[in-house]
């Protein structure tokens, strides 16, 4: 059972207080009507599903109900960082010293991302 630093409370809390909801940084297209069926399908259904460094979204459902992001190693299940959506993820990645080539995000992200989240 994981133990997570809640970036809003800034304290360690049990995993059981949270829901974990799939990949992070998968921004919804700003104008869905303009994307192709392929890109739309990629957006809804396809995931990086990374073995290794994984970016995911957590939400507290027993208290403040805020969403935040977690960087976790899916092999060791170690949580490397937690951050609010308004924090600078690039800086966090740099601070962790994660090599860019170890970061896999579902292809759609690169193509469709038109805003930062």
């Amino acid at each position: 059972m994981l133990y997570v630093r809640d970036p809003y409370l800034n304290e360690m809390r049990d995993q059981t207080e949270y829901h974990i909801r799939s990949e992070a940084h998968k921004a919804r297209p700003l104008e869905p009507s303009k994307v192709s069926d392929k890109d739309w399908g990629d957006y809804i259904f396809f995931f990086a599903n990374t073995k290794g460094i994984h970016f995911e979204r957590w939400v507290n459902f027993t208290g403040h109900r805020k969403w935040f992001n977690v960087i976790r190693n899916t092999v060791t299940d170690e949580i490397l960082a937690t951050y609010r959506p308004d924090e600078d993820v690039k800086k966090i990645i740099a601070d962790l010293g994660i090599d860019k080539k170890d970061i896999k995000v579902s292809g759609v992200l690169k193509k469709l991302k038109k805003k930062s989240s």
Binding site: H19, R21, A27, R28, R57, V59, F61, R65, K66, W67, P85, D86, S117
Partner: peptide, 13 residues
């Protein structure tokens, strides 16, 4: 309720 919060916080903050 959770879905509305999710959309608000993650898509349209």
């Amino acid at each position: 309720y959770e879905w509305l919060e999710e959309l608000h916080q993650t898509e349209w903050p």
